[in-house]
Design a protein around this nucleic acid. Structure first.
Length: 499
RNA sequence: GGCGCCAUAGUGCAUCGGUUAGCACACGGCUCUUUCAAGGCCGAAGGACGGGUUCGACUCCCGUUGGCGCCGCCA
């Protein structure tokens, strides 16, 4: 059997969302697992809903995920063009062929008539659908109707009896009653094909072997199957993957509370490997109890049989957990490099960063790595490594700085540190503790105020590690600044005494 | 309204006729600790309901209920 050929076929009608990309993930993983070809095809047949820029977002999202396509926009291929808007003549030709075969017909019904028909059906609780008025027109009627509406659509003539059946890898054998099917439009009055038509023509012409798509297409698959039959073409393997739902358990959409635009996850600083891990394990399982998968493991283990049947609710907490795990999996150098764009945006490092900026960053990274989730949080998390004029966190200042003992303490610590010959975690810790001890204070009583003085915050990496990175001069200067700050406010602010 | 798909803790998955129904996230507690994380330990929490089939059903079949999807000159 020849190598599988799969396509991801988005329409450029808006920002791709998580569900779209998850479908791409399954296509991509199966391709790489089998050594098949991954194709990107743009289904831009709806001129009204076309959104400028969405094509770019689609390509950016796929590439960011490391899912480069083997054929498609910008890379070409032997089955192009890969934009449906550039294949109009092809669809017209095949539509004509269907008419000749008696499996399609021109429909002159106006949108108004269709609208009325629909209203009538709805108000009488009848099944919705076209009434096939134009399916068997006499030559006279056709001529008359053609004068009334010179821009007909072309509809596919569905079988009126029997059943349409097909096998879906994840759903099993599916059977649909033909009598309930609709004569759907294949060519619109503007000459553009509909999804249902172009999709089938292109899948055949591009020799697609497996159609992996969301389960919302199950109901229209009988239409597709009948077209393959009408042309005498072999059908691809159908793979209907479960939907991804938002917290309201609705199909993900722009209206969902869940962050929908995929690129917003890129902007937030999620790791592509975390996102891939997350998306791949939503609706698919290798069968083992395993949480972290690398791209290689996913490609190695991905099978169609592992795809589950039920829809999955998008769980941001799980994504974030996976994100944290993958952040911690990165080497210091790797994480440092990925942080650069975010730090540049905050003006912490230059573009490009200097060698010494990178060296400094690589000393910071180990301290924040276990605490960092979204890369976009790095600038805030590292603020005091780059700025001296930070404010003191209000609660922390009230609790640790505004005490009559603190100015003296901080100055004593500063003095002690200034005398240090060697600046290491161990020497710093010893000095800080000793300075505190000389004033009759122990551990926490000195460490907390010092932390606030040096970082402005009550939380963060180990104090001595961070002071080590900051360096002696900065630390002592900050201690003296805090001491002065505290002295200025003595008596003016009520210290918080509770622990 | 018609048709279809789905149904294991709050969430994501495992268990594909025989298990005290397992794991992860989230949640609660403890622990480590200068804080916050990370880590370790412990805990609470589940087979929608009803019928079959079978020696035995979470697992197979049917029905009910519920959820979702589709029913466009959208994809």
């Amino acid at each position: 059997m020849s190598k599988p050929r799969l396509r991801f076929a988005p329409s450029p009608t808006g920002s791709p969302h998580v569900g779209n990309i998850r479908t791409a993930v399954f296509n991509y993983l199966y391709c790489r697992h089998t050594g098949g070809t991954f194709i990107l095809r743009i289904e831009d047949t709806d001129r009204e809903r076309y959104v400028e820029g969405s094509l770019e977002e689609i390509m950016l999202s796929l590439r960011w995920m490391g899912m480069d396509w083997d054929e498609g926009p910008e890379v070409g291929g032997d089955y192009g063009p890969y934009f449906q808007s550039q294949r109009l003549d092809i669809y017209a030709r095949y539509a004509e062929e269907l008419i000749e075969r008696g499996r399609a017909y021109r429909c002159y019904c106006t949108k108004e008539r269709l609208e009325e028909l629909r209203k009538y059906q709805e108000s009488n609780k009848l099944p919705l659908g076209y009434d096939r008025r134009c399916r068997d027109l006499s030559p006279e009627d056709r001529a008359r109707l053609e004068r009334e509406n010179p821009e007909p659509v072309i509809r596919f003539a569905m079988k009126l009896e029997g059943t349409t059946e097909f096998d879906d890898v994840v759903r099993g054998h599916l059977v649909f009653d033909n009598a309930l099917q609709d004569d759907f439009v294949i060519i619109k009055s503007d000459g553009y094909p509909t999804y249902n038509f172009a999709n089938v023509i292109d899948d055949h012409l591009m020799e697609i072997t497996h159609v992996i798509r969301g389960e919302e297409f199950i109901s229209s698959t009988p239409k597709h199957v009948q077209m393959y039959e009408a042309f005498g073409w072999e059908t691809p393997v159908w793979v209907s993957v479960p939907l991804i739902l938002d917290e309201q358990r609705r199909k993900l959409s722009k209206r969902s509370d869940t962050q929908t635009r995929f690129v917003s996850y890129i902007e937030d600083g999620y790791l592509p490997e975390a996102m891939l891990n997350f998306l791949a394990t939503m609706g698919w399982s290798s069968g083992e109890d395993k949480k972290i998968y690398t791209r290689e493991e996913l490609i190695e283990q991905f099978t169609l049989e592992g795809i589950s049947t039920s829809a999955a609710v998008f769980d941001l907490a799980r994504l974030n957990d996976l994100q944290g795990e993958h952040v911690r999996l990165l080497s210091v150098d790797d994480l440092a490099n990925r942080l650069v764009p975010f730090l540049q945006a905050a003006n912490y490092v230059g573009n490009p960063p200097t060698a010494s900026e990178m060296d400094y960053l690589k000393r910071i990274v180990p301290l924040i790595q276990p605490r960092l989730v979204l890369l976009k949080d790095a600038p805030d998390m590292t603020l005091y490594f780059y700025r001296d004029d930070f404010d003191y966190e209000e609660k922390g200042a009230r609790k640790y700085l505004v005490k009559d003992t603190t100015p003296g303490l901080l100055e004593a610590v500063a003095e002690k540190l200034e005398s240090l010959q060697q600046w290491f975690c161990e020497t710093i810790e010893l000095a800080v503790r000793e300075a505190g001890a000389s004033l009759g204070m122990e551990g926490g009583q000195v460490i907390h105020p010092v932390r606030v003085a040096v970082t402005g915050r009550t939380f963060g990496p180990g104090l001595f590690e961070l002071m080590d990175v900051l360096g002696k001069d900065r630390c002592t200067a900050r201690l003296r600044r805090a001491a002065a700050w505290a002295r200025d406010r003595l008596g003016t602010v009520e210290p918080q005494t509770s622990s």
